[in-house]
Amino acid sequence: MSAIDRRKPVSLKVASTIFIVVWFIVAAFPFFWTLWGSFKVELDFFSIADWTNAITGKLTDEIYGRPFTGAGYYGAWVQEDFWRAALNTGIVCFFVVCTSLTIGTLGGYALSRSGHNYVFWLLIAALIFRAMPPITLVSGYLPPFFAWNLWGYLPTAIIVLVAINQPFTLWMLHSFFQKIPIDLDESAKVDGCTQFQAFRHVIIPVMWPGVITTGLFSFLLAYNDFAVTTMLLNEQNRTMVPKIAAFLGTTYTEGNVMFAVAAVVSAIVPLFLLVMLFQRQIVSGLTAGAVKG
């Protein structure tokens, strides 16, 4: 498109620049505003007197002697045990990503290497499963989980999230493995390897870019899940997002909104870093299914 740019009329350039600036503010400003405000007292963050207090921290200054305070963070992480929720999220994400990639890689590899008709139908089934809103499955989980005393524990939520993750993982890895030439493992098989040995020694060493991209999305699903974790975990085992939702019920009445604000900021920071490190993989993953179809 660079050829067009050279001849771009000034008016269009100005309009385009203004639009970009506006979108930039719309997309980024709420995050910076909340980050900044999370270090203030509630009466500054929600300012009745003067909205500039949220920037200058006038009342925060009056109470703490400086315009910033970590009181919200202290309240959330120490008083309200948000550290436990963060730890739970870490555990859930780690095991969901590992399990999901292990069984998804085997399945996706098999789908890409079998020429039989049922591959298509399995992928269609996965597509249908992917479209199911997780919340609609929850009332199917609850009776057996209560009956067998599985409700509330992290491993239960982990395995459910792994399963919910599989359809997407299979699609992504299936299309990724198809880009790896079949000659690679076929020639290994000619040399006497079994299919699994061919997978183990020939495919695994070259599959990491696709697996990392898929893993990022598995991580995001586990990290961001609300429907499953809020319904299947007990208070002790809650992950960050349901914990934040639980804050809302209590904090509005107790005047601890800043705890929730601090918790929200804490939950966003890892995502911020993740996008910073893996922007290219995330973009390629988002467009993988779209651009080729």
């Binding site: 020429g115 699609w171 992504m172 299309s175 079949i182 299914g289 179809g293």
Partner: peptide, 11 residues
């Protein structure tokens, strides 16, 4: 986030 293209089954 969702690869929904047609499945490219091996010929």
């Amino acid at each position: 986030m969702r690869p929904w293209g047609a499945p490219h089954t091996q010929s």
